[in-house]
């Protein structure tokens, strides 16, 4: 199998080589990209397809709580919800992971032990990422030591926007190393990168540096995951696998609240990268309120009527 080293050996050799490579990627026409995402958004997903998509979406959720007010109690409640999202229906799948701040990893890991539901932790001075590299690495190691299976890091957007791509690259590599066996999700904060060209460049930069997942956003800024930026990142992982043979996952996060939206994202996956990514090993939703809407839609499909928000658990 070809590796990144053999396929793209020179592009990270220096800051200028990296810049040349990233700026040599095909441009993105914003109007065309958004039109394609909107057009896929008109797919009509009904009956059996809807049931499949809803369960798949539930199984892809990184059920998230990232609040200053988080407590062990809140995290345990969330973990219980992740394990059995619908207490009235044992056929509802578990979510993919629970995503918490590093100091809550231990609590989450204890609650989820042996379940198969992963513990993901944001690290690297999330969400701003404005800390020294040593602090970010310590943050990462702490989370992994406490039992995190997955690390969601943020890139240094300041360095990226000022064109210091190699700095961003080296930082991702260092965090990857600190994360050890944990899978690394690299958050670009697409709302701050602002242009689609930047999002494509950041995607390649992250993948070259060894990201296991590329992720849109922290959920902490105005613009988070959109169909268009997720479509663009799906095109990037598709192209990266063609060039290197290495498959990378995608995680849109923030702002995906309804089942309808989640199904649209799954259509993007299905028609852009296909079946190989239709699995929670390769695609995730970073979301909190989405789960309850999926559960209500799921109940509607099985019972034929809407149950309402008091028939799903509030955690």
């Amino acid at each position: 199998m070809p590796t990144i080293t053999s396929a793209l050996a020179d592009v990270t050799a220096s800051d200028s080589a990296l810049r040349r490579f990233l700026h040599g990627l095909p441009g993105v026409d914003a109007v065309g990209l958004e039109a394609r995402a909107a057009s896929l958004g008109t797919r009509s997903i009904k009956t059996t397809a809807k049931a499949y998509a809803i369960d798949l979406a539930i199984s892809m959720i990184d059920l998230t709580t990232l609040e200053g007010a988080d407590t062990p109690g809140k995290v345990r409640a969330l973990a219980a919800k992740a394990l059995r999202p619908d207490p009235t229906d044992r056929t509802a799948p578990a979510t993919a992971a629970v995503c918490v701040y590093p100091d809550m990893v231990e609590t989450a890991a204890a609650a989820l032990a042996g379940s198969g539901v992963k513990v993901a932790s944001v690290a690297t001075a999330f969400p701003a990422g404005r800390a020294a590299l040593g602090v970010k690495l310590a943050d990462t190691r702490d989370a992994v030591a406490a039992g995190a299976d997955e690390i969601d890091m943020v890139i240094d957007r300041g360095a990226f926007l000022s064109g210091r791509y190699l700095k961003v690259y080296e930082e991702i590599r260092a965090v990857k190393e600190a994360a050890g066996a944990a899978r690394l999700k690299v958050i670009f904060e697409t709302g701050e990168l602002s242009t689609y060209d930047n999002i494509r460049r950041a995607s390649w930069l992250g993948m070259l540096a060894g990201a296991d997942f590329i992720k849109t956003s922290t959920g902490k800024v105005g613009v988070n995951a959109t169909p268009a930026n997720t479509l663009l990142m799906l095109q990037a992982v598709r192209d990266f696998r063609e060039r290197t043979g290495v498959q990378v996952g995608v995680k849109p996060a923030g702002g995906i609240r309804s089942s309808k939206d989640a199904v649209k994202f799954l259509v993007l996956v299905n028609e852009t990268v296909g079946a190989d990514w239709l699995d929670n090993h390769w695609f995730r939703f970073g979301a909190s309120s989405l789960l309850n809407d999926l559960l209500m839609q799921r109940q509607k499909l099985s019972t034929g009527r809407y149950s309402g928000p008091d028939y799903v658990t509030v955690d």
Binding site: P2, K46, T47, L56, Q247, H281
Partner: peptide
């Protein structure tokens, strides 16, 4: 971590079959 298919093109049939609409 999982077996990989050949780099291109994606040939596996999708489990996400759209029901008639």
């Amino acid at each position: 971590e999982t077996p990989m298919t050949s780099p291109r093109p994606t040939t596996s049939p999708s489990p996400f079959e759209y029901a008639p609409a």
